[in-house]
């Protein structure tokens, strides 16, 4: 797993292909849109999708924590798929989560639109917006150009489609213009919104760079300015 460095607001962040960002100077790990208990939320409406999404998401998170050994964890909102998600946690998942978070010096739950209330019975503090150093962590990016550099947010579940030799590949991605960073959704059952979608593209009027998640590394591509599609990379000629 090779993380990619990214400089924002004079600080170096590491983007991990697993879909989390790390601020090594502060031993801080950021993750967004866990959407825990999305499965049971669907089940309540009669759609019995496999109930293993929480377990899967937590296992992946535990891996990232083991790799980076941070002291602080910031969750950028929509950590639970709905406001009762926390109450539906399976006992074993709940215990795993408590163990995981208990080992950290600080846990910050940024509240999202899916989970507007702080989780009950879990370590950490909840806030609408968290500031630390030059960074501001919020769930939804603030529109407009006037935002000072250093905004980290989630919410949009950015994904990007890149044309390759045999069609196209779509992956969740980080998206940044050197001033703000959009994190991919981390949850096992989270889909994505194409970065070309006006909702995302309007946040990056001058275009940006997408870091597509791969198994071992990130793949970086520039994205066109507003409404622009990703440029098609020139590639070598096809055989005969």
């Amino acid at each position: 797993m090779n993380a990619a460095p990214l400089h924002i607001a004079g600080q170096r962040l590491m983007l991990d292909p697993a879909g989390v960002a790390i601020w090594p100077a502060e031993k801080l790990l950021v993750v967004s849109d866990l959407h825990l208990e999305k499965g049971s939320s669907f089940a309540a409406r009669g759609s019995f999708v496999p109930p293993y999404d929480t377990r899967e998401t937590l296992e992946r998170l535990a891996l990232a924590l083991r790799r980076w050994r941070p002291e602080r964890l910031v969750l950028l909102g929509d950590s639970f798929h709905d406001r009762h998600g926390c109450a539906r946690l399976h006992a074993s998942d709940c215990a795993a989560l408590q163990r995981m978070l208990g080992a950290l010096a600080q846990v910050v739950w940024v509240l999202g639109n899916h989970d507007p209330e702080p989780p009950v019975g879990l370590p950490g503090t909840a806030t609408e917006e968290y500031r630390h150093g030059p960074f501001v962590f919020r769930h939804i990016a603030q529109p407009g150009r006037a935002v000072p550099p250093g905004e980290l947010s989630g919410h949009y579940h950015p994904k990007a489609t890149m044309p390759v030799r045999s069609g196209a590949v779509t992956r969740p991605c980080f998206l940044t213009d050197g001033r703000r960073l959009l994190l991919p959704a981390f949850g096992a059952y989270t889909g994505g919104l194409e970065v070309r979608d006006p909702a995302i593209a309007s946040l990056f009027p001058r275009g940006g760079r997408a870091f597509l998640l791969g198994a071992e590394r990130l793949f970086s591509f520039p994205t066109g300015p507003l409404r622009g599609a990703a440029p098609v990379p020139e590639t070598a000629n096809a055989p005969p």
């Binding site: 400089h7 890149m162 044309p163 390759v164 030799r165 045999s166 590949v169 992956r171 940044t176 213009d177 050197g178 001058r206 275009g207 940006g208 760079r209 597509l212 791969g214 590394r217 793949f219 970086s220 591509f221 520039p222 994205t223 066109g224 300015p225 622009g228 440029p231 990379p233 020139e234 590639t235 070598a236």
Partner: peptide, 28 residues
């Protein structure tokens, strides 16, 4: 395939992975 495409873009943009100003030039 993604790696190949990314490399080619990097080649085309002269490996400019420092964005800000440079990135704006590239994308525009």
């Amino acid at each position: 395939l993604l790696a190949e495409a990314a490399d080619l873009v990097a080649e085309a943009t002269d490996g400019a992975d420092l964005f800000n100003e440079i990135l704006a030039n590239v994308t525009e």
